[in-house]
Design a binder for these strands. Sequence first.
DNA 1: TGAAATATTTTACGCGCGATAAGTTTTGAT
DNA 2: ATCAAAACTTATCGCGCGTAAAATATTTCA
Lengths: 343, 343
Amino acid sequence: MTDTKVRNMEEFAALSGISRPTVSKYFQDPESVRPSTRSRIEKALERYDYRPNIYAVNQNRRLTKNVGIVVPYLTDPFFAEIARKIEERFSEAGFRPTMYSPYGQPDAESEILDSLRSLKPAGVLFAPLGRASDRGALEKFCADVPTVLFDSNLEGIGEAFVGSDNFSFVSQTVEYLVRTGAPPCFFEMRTPANPNANKRRAAYLETMQEFGHEPLVLKIDGEGWAFEEIGREGARRILESGGFPRDTVLCSNDRLAIGLLSACYEKGLRVGRGEGCALRVASHDDHPFAKFTCPSLTTAAHDYDAVAIRAVSTLHELIEAGGSFARRDETLFPAKLILRSSA
Amino acid sequence: MTDTKVRNMEEFAALSGISRPTVSKYFQDPESVRPSTRSRIEKALERYDYRPNIYAVNQNRRLTKNVGIVVPYLTDPFFAEIARKIEERFSEAGFRPTMYSPYGQPDAESEILDSLRSLKPAGVLFAPLGRASDRGALEKFCADVPTVLFDSNLEGIGEAFVGSDNFSFVSQTVEYLVRTGAPPCFFEMRTPANPNANKRRAAYLETMQEFGHEPLVLKIDGEGWAFEEIGREGARRILESGGFPRDTVLCSNDRLAIGLLSACYEKGLRVGRGEGCALRVASHDDHPFAKFTCPSLTTAAHDYDAVAIRAVSTLHELIEAGGSFARRDETLFPAKLILRSSA
DNA sequence: TGAAATATTTTACGCGCGATAAGTTTTGAT
DNA sequence: ATCAAAACTTATCGCGCGTAAAATATTTCA
């Protein structure tokens, strides 16, 4: 590689012996030029290592190749993992994905949308905070930018939704717990941040009804996104005031369960399905750490890959459709029950 | 807010009754225009909600307000947490931080640097993969872009380094374990990805020597970044072939320890410092999940905040210094011992 | 009140590339 | 060899803004 620094496309075109418009065409789609020209450009590319100025490109293109990925809490490995899968797929498809997270703060979410808008992205995959989101801000954003919601559905917002079927999660765990032991009580936050939590509670109530068992919901206090801490404190309080009302607990999500398990361990309460176990615990999500809890956590798993793949392909379709669908599709993937040691 | 859509700065300037160059000046630094002008612009801003085109701005400015944050593995809550803190501070300072992660892959790391370079960032905070990094690529990058390394130090790369003092981590844990019980063996990967691991081993050897104890290093097999899994498998193998050679184990990092604890639980081996405990386990990092392991993990904590704050301020200084320092400074923050139940 | 100091306006150019139109060459099938 | 289609070249414009120089207006302070 020669060290002649190439200032712009004009210069690079001269060096490769091709006209600038053709070089421009090449960078927009290498297949769109004749093989012989392509190889000449690529040879020059090896020698001079030029890349089009991304700002000039984006200023002039009708549509950028940027896509936004927004998740509510990026330090949660669950979201980090799904964001990663989505990011990977976009990169492969030649887009420039950028990740954003409001870390639970509604005003930060609105700010992200504002700054995202000014990036003129081709599209956005958006997992909203949920209850706390500023609905008006989201609607305005979605009116301007092709947006697909994932993970957490807000009715009427975005051109489509891709996520997991909460009913499938809960019906499977409840069915399993009932079949192999006793009907569970349901362990959740009093004021969940996420609409999925409400759907899970509803599914619990419905499924228990169906099986002819009395439902019992334990609502624990706590605000914010420190779910493990909240789960642990909630469980401690229950254990210190007489213990759980049933010998089987179904947690709304794995992060609460992680906290609960830690409280049980601390109190010397043995969790699992074997001899000498006082409590069975199951949960939902298959959080990346659920394999390493003590005992390892029986849970219903998201189909991470399916959600990521479908979310990306749906956004692709949306972009190609010009930014809007005739109908707002909702795709829900079923859960897969993962049997481990906790129940 | 009126719904007249403002196309560009020209139009907005006309609407606010100020000339375009002055409006341009305002957006670069609101303090640089007369208060009376400023308030006129801001009044217009409330009515018309205009924002300068980010691509046109960045194309023409000598230096963008972009900064890059690169961490080796973003789905690791440890990195996610520190990246978050850094991101937050840059946002407050009026920069546009963007996060990148190669997820352990050296070629992805080089690609990130390439695409980062084309963003013409004012500076980059970079936590390299370590051993696997393509040193040549990093050097070339750092020659063009003001870069400060953090977390993981590669000698001679970047204009400065900010991180934690590995010796301080290990000397504190070893001292504590020796003082309150017995000298630990050291549990680590055979081929650690990160230079910090080597420094920790060296610190272990040195500290044990100093205390007059025979060091003992257990090297477990495994490749990649699935440290919990690797730690668990390594511990299983040890437990199944006679158990740990000492009753105290010091893990190189918390993620390995999480795996080890899970293996111990599985095998019915009670970990902790009380009666009936067969093993004491301590570690390093204070991973966000270390509070929730069973038992909770005694560990040496990074000063996350100090590292984040110093990394950001160092990069600020570097940018203001025009991109290079006279001397490559290395800032190391000491660890803080966190006593929990595992040792 | 007046002159110097500071802000603002006017004017004009450039950044690097996308897009388009009109003319020229190359291609590949007859 | 012929000819139309495909690919390329040349020329030119526009995107939205930064920046600089010169002219003008406003403020500041004696």
